[in-house]
Structures are given as C-alpha cells and as structure tokens.
Design a protein around this nucleic acid. Structure first.
Length: 202
DNA sequence: TTTGCGATTCGG
DNA sequence: CGAATCGCAAAG
C-alpha cells in the first residue's frame, strides 16, 4: 500500500515492498528524491538522494532480461525491492532496484546520487564501494549494507525525461528521468520537460 | 570452447 | 574519438 502525504507540490513517500512491485515506468520517476543509504564495512553511513534513474523492462531489447532468465539477471525475476548489481566494461559495477511483481523482470538503474563523485552509474558504485557482493540484497532491510529510505518525491514540474544513455538498441525510448537542473545529474542534459500525469502517481 | 561486445569513464 | 579491461552469453 502506498503511503503518501502531499506537501507543497512535493510528496513524502514511505517505501514499502508494494512501492517497488509496480510497473517499472511508474517506479522510476517516483524514486527521484528517495534517500539511498550505504553502510560501509567500517560502520560509516553515507546518505544521498537519488537524482537520476533509467527504466528497463521485460519487453525492452536493452534490458538484460529481454532474452529470458540467465544467471546474471536472475534477481530481476525475483521479488521487488532487491538490488541487481552487474559488472560492465571490465571495470565498473552498476546498481539497479528490482521492480514489478514476483516472476516478472524489471529494474531501475540508479544513475546518479546528489553527492560528490556519484554522478554516473559506474562512478557512484566505485565511490561508495558497491560491488558484486551486493547483488540480491534487500533494499528494504535497514540492516542491509544498501538501504532505501523514505524521501521527498519530486512533482512532474521538477522532473525531466530524456532518452537513455549509452545504449545501442531501443535508444528512442524516453525512459531516463532526472531532477531538473540538479548539478549531480550525469551525461548530457538534452531532454524535454515531463508531461504532467505520466510522472505523478497521485 | 571461443569470441564479440557492453545500461562506462577518462583522457587526448 | 579511442583505450582500458573482463565477464557474459551467443555462436561454433
């Protein structure tokens, strides 16, 4: 059950399993503004808001799960709210949040956090020590090394939509969402304003 | 078993 | 624009 409290155009959101077990394209923009919490092995705790994401779905040629379940993308087929971490280009890790109902693959790539050095999916994992060992961790368990905490959702007026970055297929899908004018957003900012309705769930 | 390439980043 | 760098998954 979603738990919303509307305050001045933004929305305070409590994160539950059901929040993530929705269509990926609804979850993706809703994640902007949610707080990402990283507990390091030393015990130090890092926190920052999510400011840029991309959606990947079952019928999407760019999605790792497009051709069915494999060892790598297995967690995408499991319950929502878990971390899908993969290794890419021989040197970077990327962090995703699993979405959709159990059995249906889908994920949201976390591309940037509102914190120095976390601008870009590879950089944020490097900066905050996220790697293969975090694949499959429960992001709703506050004792996990990776945790998603409540935050303040941005309204459509504060969200910009663009095509996804770095793909060679399905490049035309406008499935990248970021906080408009946020200095921590990665890559080029070529985009168009979001149209109200598709971003706000309520 | 082999091979081509990728949801990236950085430097020239 | 190309190099770095290696695991995944499709092809053989």
């Amino acid at each position: 059950m979603l738990d919303y409290l509307v305050v001045k155009g933004t929305t305070k959101v409590k994160l539950t399993r059901d929040f993530f077990a929705r269509p990926t394209l609804e979850v993706a923009p809703d994640l902007l503004g949610m707080t990402f919490v990283r507990t390091l092995p030393s015990g130090e705790i890092l926190r920052a808001p999510i400011v840029e994401v991309e959606a990947y779905t079952q019928d999407d040629p760019a999605c790792h799960a497009f051709r069915g379940i494999t060892e790598r993308c297995r967690v995408m087929f499991g319950p929502a709210g878990f971390a899908y971490v993969y290794f890419i280009y021989g040197m970077y890790f990327c962090l995703n949040v699993v979405t959709e109902a159990d059995g249906v693959p889908g994920a949201v790539l976390i591309r940037a956090l509102g914190s120095p050095g976390c601008e870009g999916p590879g950089k944020l994992c490097r900066e905050w020590g996220i790697d293969r060992s975090h694949n499959g961790v429960d992001l709703l368990d506050c004792h996990s090394p990776l945790y998603l905490e409540h935050g303040t959702k941005y309204g459509a007026d504060f969200v910009t939509i663009s095509e996804r970055i770095g793909l060679n297929v399905a490049t035309e899908r406008p499935w990248r969402f970021f906080v408009t004018e946020n200095p921590h957003v990665s890559g080029r900012k070529k985009s168009r304003k979001s149209s109200a309705g598709s971003v706000n769930v309520k």
